[in-house]
Amino acid sequence: MLNIADTLRIWCREARPFALATVVQVSGSAPLPVGTALAVDADGNAVGSVSGGCVEGAVYELCQQVLKADEPPTRARFGYSDDDAFAIGLTCGGELDVLVQRINPTEQPHLTAALDEVAAGRPTAVAHIIDGPEELLGRTLGVTGDAGTREGSVGGEDWEDTVTAQARALLRAGRTGRVEIGGDATTCPERLSVLVHTHAVRPRMLIFGAVDFAGALSEVGRFLGYRVTVCDARPVFATPARFPHADEVVTDWPHRYLGVTEVDARTAVCVLTHDAKFDIPLLRLALHLPVAYVGAMGSRRTHTHRLELLREAGVPKEHLIRLRSPIGLDLGAHTPEETAISIAAEIVAHTHQGPGTPLTWSTGPIHRGTTRSMVSSQA
């Protein structure tokens, strides 16, 4: 849903009814993830996608039907058919379930409020009932702001408390996900499947070392949606003019800055200095923090020496195994730009637990939801 938040916000503010088709379950190589949506207004305008093109026409027609007839929410499944080559389905071989419902913004002002929060860049979650009692199907509840203010209704205080708690947890993790609620006397008597759409603040990429590689990596990191910080103790190198793609450039000793700045379980720490006086105190701290990724640039000889120094500094083995060094995937990179792609590729693979091997060599689903690492250009 939030993939088309900008347009939905306009339609809601104009009190324009629309049909919303949301991917609520995928299997196999379905091209788009759970939570992705397509919407159609009364004039036939469409925005978004649920399949990247395979079944858009059928979903569009279903949206128009639900919107014009004011029908209750309905679910449809699309998959590949070996028996009928002309059947509507996914050519990629996967399957997806789509929930289609009519949205009247005047009846759901909390949805407009949630979309306003998204537009303002504030953390927001929309809990969406995708399976359960017929009278609750399609209902939404918004959880907005850092304090988790709740608006909307999903039918009963007990349910709403439980749904809100789940939405807050996923919002903190920055993850859209499906949760199962109820089915027992202590929560709610009937079982609900709730899809929580989240718009979290951008994850952070902390780049230490104001070098040419940092300039290229800051551009790639920002492209991937990270809030990028470049930090270096040398003021002559740590300047905004040298790193125009970074959200901020900090002049400070790396370990001192890392010790006071905010990090979380999505933060990527990239150490590009390969200078022991900076690296060792920085990595000693970084490997202790609950961040997503810690990588350090350097040759294999530099890496071996760095590990010795970290052991001497008292870094335990269970922390050392978290270190990605030499940083990046083996793409045969040479230039700063190629190296930045190599580092970013490793971060993406690590985030999604991908093996980093060519898809040509692998089998099974392409979309799911560790590897050798040598960047030849590292010093």
Rank of each mutant, 00 (worst) to 15 (best):
A268H: 04
L310K: 14
F243W: 07
A286Q: 00
A241P: 00
A292N: 07
R311G: 12
V220K: 09
H245Y: 09
V250T: 07
G259C: 01
L224A: 15
V220A: 10
L287Q: 07
Y257V: 11
T239N: 08
H288N: 12
T261F: 02
T273N: 10
A265E: 14
V260L: 04
R222P: 09
Y257G: 03
A241G: 02
P244W: 01
R242S: 12
V294R: 08
A268N: 10
L285Y: 02
I280D: 04
A313Q: 04
G221M: 08
F223G: 12
G314S: 09
A265M: 04
Y226A: 10
I280G: 03
G259I: 00
E219Y: 04
L287K: 04
V250R: 05
A246L: 05
V291T: 07
Y293M: 03
V260Y: 02
R311W: 12
P290Y: 03
H303G: 07
H274S: 06
K277E: 09
T229Q: 12
F243A: 02
E308R: 15
R301T: 15
A265Y: 02
L287P: 09
T273M: 12
A268T: 10
L224F: 15
R242A: 15
H274P: 13
P290D: 05
R234E: 10
E262R: 13
E248T: 13
A286W: 02
V294L: 01
L287R: 09
P235E: 04
L282Y: 06
A216Q: 04
V263C: 12
F237G: 00
